[in-house]
Computed example of a mutant assay.
Amino acid sequence: MQFGIFSVGDVTTDPTTGRTPTEHERIKAMVAIALKAEEVGLDVFATGEHHNPPFVPSSPTTMLGYIAARTERLILSTSTTLITTNDPVKIAEDFAMLQHLAEGRVDVMMGRGNTGPVYPWFGQDIRQGIPLAIENYALLHQLWREENVDWQGRFRTPLQSFTSTPRPLDDTPPFVWHGSIRSPEIAEQAAYYGDGFFANNIFWPKEHFQKLINLYRERYAHYGHGTPEQAMVGLGGQVFMRKNSQDAVREFRPYFDNAPVYGHGPSLEEFTEQTPLTVGSPQEVVEKTLAFRESFGDYQRQLFLMDHAGLPLKTVLEQLDLLGEEVVPVLRKEFAKGRPAEVPDGPTHAARVAARTESLEEAK
Score class of each variant (00 low, 15 high):
247 D>E: 15
248 A>M: 03
120 P>G: 02
253 R>S: 15
22 T>K: 04
242 R>N: 12
288 K>V: 12
217 R>T: 11
93 E>G: 08
113 G>D: 06
330 V>F: 04
146 E>Y: 03
258 N>W: 06
196 G>N: 01
19 R>F: 04
78 T>G: 11
92 A>I: 05
44 V>D: 01
291 A>G: 04
58 S>L: 09
269 E>M: 03
338 G>N: 09
234 G>H: 04
155 F>C: 08
297 G>Q: 07
129 G>L: 05
340 P>K: 13
144 W>R: 06
26 R>V: 02
101 L>K: 02
21 P>W: 08
121 W>C: 10
241 M>F: 06
354 A>H: 05
89 V>S: 08
216 Y>C: 01
232 M>Y: 15
165 T>V: 14
167 R>Y: 07
155 F>H: 13
203 F>S: 15
125 D>L: 06
152 Q>T: 15
92 A>K: 00
153 G>F: 03
337 K>N: 07
189 Q>L: 15
242 R>V: 00
22 T>G: 10
325 E>L: 10
13 T>A: 10
45 F>V: 09
175 F>G: 00
81 T>N: 09
270 E>Y: 11
152 Q>E: 14
320 L>H: 00
186 I>D: 00
257 D>H: 07
59 S>I: 12
263 G>A: 10
141 H>Y: 15
71 T>Y: 11
93 E>I: 08
10 D>P: 01
361 E>Q: 13
312 P>M: 08
18 G>R: 11
50 H>W: 00
336 A>E: 11
124 Q>I: 00
74 L>N: 01
363 A>M: 13
126 I>R: 11
246 Q>P: 01
101 L>Q: 09
223 Y>D: 09
241 M>A: 09
64 L>V: 14
4 G>F: 00
335 F>R: 12
165 T>K: 10
285 V>M: 09
345 D>M: 10
114 N>R: 05
166 P>E: 08
328 V>R: 02
320 L>T: 00
171 D>P: 01
273 E>L: 04
34 A>W: 06
143 L>E: 02
192 Y>A: 13
360 L>G: 00
206 K>D: 15
126 I>Y: 03
298 D>Y: 13
59 S>T: 14
91 I>S: 10
202 I>V: 13
151 W>Y: 14
149 V>A: 11
345 D>Y: 00
229 E>A: 15
175 F>R: 03
286 V>Y: 05
110 M>G: 15
215 L>M: 12
283 Q>L: 11
22 T>E: 05
57 P>C: 08
103 E>W: 06
356 R>P: 02
316 V>E: 01
126 I>K: 03
319 Q>A: 04
357 T>S: 09
285 V>H: 00
37 A>S: 13
72 E>Q: 14
197 F>S: 09
64 L>C: 12
225 H>T: 05
187 A>V: 12
335 F>M: 12
242 R>K: 15
268 L>N: 02
167 R>T: 15
29 A>N: 13
34 A>M: 01
53 P>D: 12
207 E>D: 15
128 Q>M: 07
348 T>C: 11
245 S>V: 06
89 V>Q: 12
326 E>R: 14
127 R>N: 14
144 W>V: 07
128 Q>H: 12
150 D>C: 14
290 L>N: 00
77 S>E: 07
124 Q>S: 05
245 S>H: 02
157 T>V: 09
164 S>I: 05
81 T>K: 01
256 F>C: 07
